[in-house]
Simulated assay, not measured.
Amino acid sequence: MSITTPEHDERIAQMKFSSVYPHYVTKVEKKGRTKDELHQVIEWLTGYDLKKLEELIESQVTFEKFFEDATLNPNAHLIKGVICGYRIEDIETPLTKQTRYLDKLVEELARGRKMEKILRVV
């Protein structure tokens, strides 16, 4: 049994990355982290460099398209814990799980976690 509903998963899939990105920036900067650090975290997870990220924001892709074209980091499965009320390990829908991975990394960055820990350097 899935812990997310099909409606919830579809809402995430259709959400535009460009509408959430400014919130990520605000969240990390408010806590004294930088936009560059945020970009480093996003690139680690997705493989997108700054130029590609700017293109995706400009073209207003959905999260579905954002993750469809991403090259997920092989250590992404090491991202665990609760985010937005859901335990990441229990999310079955791949896209919802990937989106929550990103949310979790942004939260860890904002909380002041060391970059090596966020990037799951093993």
Score class of each variant (00 low, 15 high):
V28W: 05
A110W: 06
L78A: 11
T26L: 14
K30V: 08
H23S: 12
Q40Y: 04
S2L: 07
L45Q: 02
E116C: 11
L102M: 12
L56R: 11
L95F: 02
E58R: 13
F67K: 06
E108G: 02
E92C: 10
Q14P: 02
V61Y: 04
K65R: 15
D90G: 04
T4Y: 01
F67V: 04
K97M: 10
S19H: 12
I118W: 01
E7F: 11
H39D: 08
K31Y: 09
Y21A: 06
L72F: 05
V82S: 14
G112M: 03
I118T: 05
T4N: 01
V20I: 12
E29P: 03
M1P: 06
R100S: 03
R100A: 08
M15L: 13
G112L: 11
K114R: 13
G112E: 05
K52C: 03
E58K: 15
V106A: 03
I91D: 01
K65S: 08
I42M: 00
H8E: 13
L95N: 06
A110Y: 02
R33S: 00
S59E: 14
K52W: 05
N75F: 14
R113Q: 13
R111G: 15
E37G: 06
V20Y: 04
T26D: 14
K30M: 13
N73E: 00
Y24T: 05
E7Q: 13
Q14N: 14
R11L: 07
Y48E: 00
R113I: 12
T96M: 06
P6D: 03
T62C: 06
Y86E: 08
E29N: 15
S2W: 02
Q14A: 09
E116R: 15
R120D: 00
D49K: 11
T71P: 01
E107K: 12
E116K: 15
S19A: 13
R120E: 06
I79S: 08
S2M: 06
K114V: 06
F63M: 08
L38Y: 10
A70E: 09
T99I: 09
H77Q: 12
H23A: 12
E54G: 02
V106F: 02
H23D: 14
L109N: 00
E43R: 13
R33I: 07
L95C: 09
Y24P: 06
K16Q: 14
I12M: 05
